[in-house]
């Protein structure tokens, strides 16, 4: 059979969802952000909520997320996405509201906002991309950086005495009464991508059930910041990150 006979519209089994725009993403080759954007877009398409979804984009690499998903967006001040999402959701309770934040935005400068938004049990979805480094600003140490990990500001590796310990925010948030679904996923291979998509879908469904905040952490890579190629970065993540950031549902009520 000729390739031309296979490549026909009726044989198409997977393609780009129309919720993603045609803009070329500015992310580095192999960046986890692209996969997570795609998963959110696919969930929005499958749930048929493109007109009812409002995203809040962070400061960080994902600051331009509004260029890539064809939904309504607001851009928050650094770390303040959960506060803005609180206002949007309270004023528009019939809308699906989510924030999309990296570890610099959520776990560092926005630590207070996310704690209180989750503690209040706001009916929003929080997508948290944890790649253990500040990607946009040039690979400095983040609160989530692993011990011994070399970054621009810890050239001899992160030292607990000097820099403290990696912050596992997801476990902390699971302790709060306001959260209903807290999970940690990854997107380095097809199986994990499919699991992450299910988790995101569940989080979006929860936001209409008035059960509380749904929090989805995605352990991702920053191959530029880690100074590795994308495939090696995925391997490094599996070997090193998952020991400190184990995958799976932490809370589901």
């Amino acid at each position: 059979m000729d390739i031309k006979d296979i490549i026909k519209e009726e044989n198409k089994v997977y393609g780009k969802t129309p919720v993603l725009t045609d803009n070329v993403m500015h992310y580095c080759p192999g960046c986890s952000h692209g996969v997570v954007h795609k998963l959110i877009a696919e969930v929005i398409e499958e749930m048929g909520i493109q007109d009812k979804t409002i995203g809040v984009s962070p400061v960080g690499c994902a600051v331009l997320a509004y260029n890539y998903l064809d939904i309504d967006w607001e851009e928050a001040a650094h770390g303040r996405a959960p506060a803005l999402a609180t206002a949007i959701k309270r004023l528009n309770p019939d809308k699906y509201v989510f924030t999309y934040q990296g570890d610099g935005d959520l776990a560092s400068i926005g630590c207070g906002e996310i704690m209180h938004a989750c503690n209040r049990g706001e009916n929003i979805v929080v997508i948290f991309i944890n790649n253990a480094i500040y990607g946009m600003t040039g690979g400095q140490m983040a609160p989530t950086t692993l011990l011994g990990m070399v970054t621009a500001t810890t050239p001899y590796g992160r030292n607990a005495e000097l820099n403290g310990y990696p912050l596992r925010l997801t476990e902390l948030l699971a302790q709060l009464d306001g959260t209903c679904y807290v999970t940690r996923q990854s997107v380095q291979n097809p199986a994990s991508v499919r699991k992450a998509k299910k988790a995101i879908q569940k989080a979006f469904e929860n936001s209409m059930k008035k059960k509380g905040t749904s929090f989805v952490e995605i352990v991702g890579t920053c191959n530029s910041g880690w100074k590795m190629n994308p495939v090696k970065a995925n391997q490094w993540m599996e070997e090193n990150m998952f020991a400190k950031y184990p995958l799976g549902d932490i809370k589901d009520i």
Binding site: N11, V13, G15, G34, P190
Partner: peptide, 19 residues
């Protein structure tokens, strides 16, 4: 046509066909 490549593609540039 297993779609694994398109599933992991960060830039959604792969379209998969299967017969």
């Amino acid at each position: 046509g297993c779609t694994n490549c398109a599933t992991v593609c960060p830039d959604s540039v792969i379209t998969v066909y299967r017969v």
